[in-house]
Amino acid sequence: MGKSTMTTGTLRRPPPRPAAPDGTAPGARPRYRRNRPGIAYLFLSPWVAGALLLTIGPMLASLYLSFTDYDLFTSPEWVGLENYQRLFADDARFLASAKVTAMYVLISVPLKLAAALAVALLLNRKRRGQGFYRSAFYAPSLLGTGVAIALVWRAMFTDAGVVDSVTGTFGWDTGGWINEPDYALYVLIILAVWQFGAPMVIFLAGLKQIPTELYDAAAVDGSGTWRTFRSVTLPMLSPIILFNLVLETIHAFQAFTPAFIVSGGRGGPSNSTLFYTLYLYERGFSQFRMGYASAMAWLLLLVIAIITALFFGTSRRWVFYSGEDR
């Protein structure tokens, strides 16, 4: 800090007027100042400290810990690949948690994005009230991540709760979805899909960027609604679809709160809501098997990295960037 205040301290004066007329020729911008890395790193110093102490350092540390036996209180003991071997060879709960999480991601993400796209298409009209509706649809995305709404879900899907009462009148007595291993996961999937407002807002912004000329041309060619959607809207929107797909997938893998609250922290019934992160928390912070939990964390990172790479790797085939000759 000292250096910069010395160089600038003598210049303390009222804020400069923007775009002061100074007689400099337009092309000749002064560039004598910005090339001072010292000041750049001064601005970056909190970020650098965070990146080193809270991101890179801990990442490497947890990679190391994943090859050790570590309980937080005694120093870590090197065990090689044992944690990883045990995860796959003899940990039924881990395999269950991986399966539950995979199902949750595979079902909730496509449904959420489909709902988001459908409502975005519906809202994409120049009509009164559009802004209000857009905000109202977005509201669940803000509320839904909290504990309060998860408690609501727990109560609505419990035995003799609202959903059970409604299905009961049609002769389908479930005994509460959250108590049924076959249905419990769907309670969480419905909660995830309910929060489609965030990707919807992004879709809506993307829809508004599509040039009207394309729709006019499609209309002149006698293209119907479905054909126009397939041939104009979807390709033009594909970069946004990729973006939402990557983001929502990453978030779905890390979901924790709804499963914890709805299952009371245990992932039941019969492990049917045992999210990966829930099991990781249980191993790390209930049983203090932190080496084991670190191995799980690195597997999660690996899976997320591979899936993200797959999305981007295949995107050349299905994502259309306008201006590209394809």
Partner: peptide, 12 residues
Amino acid sequence: MLPYHVVLIPQY
């Protein structure tokens, strides 16, 4: 993209 869990235990 980094899952929080990868840095959580060393941070803790």
